[in-house]
Amino acid sequence: MNPQMVMYEEEFNQIQAVVERLVKEANAKVVFIVDKNGQLIAAAGDTENLDTTSLASLTAGNIAATGGMARLLRENEFATQYHEGEKANIHIQLVGNRVILVVIFDARSSLGLVRLRVRRASDELNAIFEALLTKVQSPDRNDVLTEITDADIDNLFND
């Protein structure tokens, strides 16, 4: 089982900085990061008219299905996927087998440029998530959860 995913302000800011820079450097429309269970972690670019929650869940499903195919072929993972549309293209990269980096781009960019920029961003993200994981496993985490009382949970349903 994977450890629980937790996000703190410090690491979020680092991740957000990488994602925002990737939008610029890759001439992308949207960049977002999803964990393998489909939770959206960060997003940048023209996300206003985009259903990022749905995209996150479908991306994770897609990576899970591709991972299933990989295992049947005795491959470890297919770490990269690329889907080409008429106007929009989508580049999906598994980072450190933990999170998924998604870049949506159009004719203003190219697959070559996106791949190049994604490679560098992946290394940076990997290091950040590595550090985050260490922090999550330290003993004094999740203080908010321990404070929750049974009454708090019951109150959620008092409608």
């Binding site: 994977n2 629980q4 937790v6 996000m7 703190y8 269970n37 489909g38 939770q39 908010v144 959860l145």
Partner: peptide, 15 residues
């Protein structure tokens, strides 16, 4: 595996 986001103050769970 739940996802606790301290920044956006969200607890996310999968059912």
């Amino acid at each position: 595996m739940s996802f606790i986001n301290y920044l956006s103050r969200e607890i996310n769970c999968k059912l």
